[in-house]
Computed example of a mutant assay.
Amino acid sequence: MKIPMLEKLMFDEPSIWITATTVATLISTAYLGFAEMIGNHLQYSKFTSSSSDKKPQGIKVSSRTGMLILYTPAFLAGVVSFFVFPDDGDGDLRFLLLKFAVTFHFFKRDLEVLFVHKYSGGMILGLIILISIFYFSAVVGLIVVHYLTLGIPEPLIDLKYIGLIVFMLGILGNFYHHNLLVKLRKPNEKGYKIPQGGLFNLVICPHYLFEIVVFVGISFISQTPFAFACTFGDSLYLIARSYETRKWYVNKFEDFPKNVKCVIPYVF
């Protein structure tokens, strides 16, 4: 049964195979969020050494190298899309904005890895490859699925311009709070501190909040069910990881402010 409001907001899916891909994407990304909630963390950042006695096994690389491997294939997929699916003169602005958004998002991530973030420790190569494949597949899926909708009637409610504004808001907010995190550590410091400034005074993971905003913007630009599924699943994962991050800070710092929520100010 079709829901009238959703019909106004989304493209019709061009085939049963695209619908199956959308459902599989939603289930797999939602599972990652559930796994975080039950303590089965993806072993990077502060969760590299979890509360469990088991140490992650495998080939270890530096965190900076690992993060570049995470993001670069997705960025390159976005770049290649401009050549594989060039503007044919019909002026499909929505498709152009989508290719720009996903490419710029991962380009920004690579730039932050190279010039902004400070790292300590390392990452397990097997996990890096797994997450990298996930990001790469998401970018390819977003672009190919949208390409297949070209020629299908547009949704009655056009969100692409709102989506572009939301996307840029997310990019700027995410970058701003990443910079605040970097400034916490003085040169040669590797320990963790309670973040302050910006929305850190309200939530422990405002950078995750704005990353969710980024994906909401992308889904508004695309307006395909696949894009909304990616956004929903990614949001569940980031909300769950924010919950675990707050719990980690509470356990590590006795003076952690009780009024600071996980990811949504005043709510959660």
Rank of each mutant, 00 (worst) to 15 (best):
F115P: 00
V79K: 12
R246M: 14
T21N: 15
V80G: 02
V263I: 15
I16L: 14
K8Q: 12
I264L: 08
C205G: 03
G66Q: 00
F104A: 12
S222A: 13
E211Y: 08
D255T: 06
P153H: 01
I239F: 10
H178P: 02
Y249C: 06
G163V: 04
Y71M: 03
L96I: 09
L96E: 09
K2M: 12
A138P: 01
D92G: 08
A229M: 05
K2E: 06
S219H: 02
C205A: 15
Q57N: 12
G121T: 09
F75R: 01
F268D: 06
R246F: 11
G151L: 03
K190I: 12
F226V: 01
Y243W: 12
D92T: 03
L130M: 14
F75Q: 01
I239D: 02
L111T: 10
V61L: 14
H146S: 15
S45P: 10
G233V: 06
E36N: 12
F34A: 11
N40A: 11
P153C: 05
F253I: 00
G141M: 08
N179S: 10
L70I: 06
K2Y: 01
V267C: 13
I239P: 00
A74D: 00
D87K: 14
L181Q: 12
I129M: 06
Y71W: 03
S222H: 03
I124Y: 05
L156E: 15
L76Y: 00
R246G: 15
M168Q: 07
I3K: 04
P86E: 05
G33L: 05
L130Q: 10
F256C: 00
F106A: 03
I128E: 07
C262Y: 11
L164S: 07
K55L: 13
F232C: 04
V263H: 07
I221E: 00
I18T: 06
D158N: 08
H117E: 13
I171R: 00
N188L: 06
N174G: 02
G217A: 06
F34C: 07
W17N: 11
C262S: 13
I3S: 10
S52H: 07
G163L: 04
L125E: 08
L169F: 11
I124F: 06
F85Q: 11
E7H: 12
F115R: 08
S120P: 07
G121E: 09
Q57M: 12
M67H: 07
I38F: 07
A35C: 08
N188F: 08
L70R: 01
V140N: 04
K186E: 07
A240V: 09
K2L: 08
F47Q: 10
E254G: 13
D53N: 15
G66H: 02
Y266H: 13
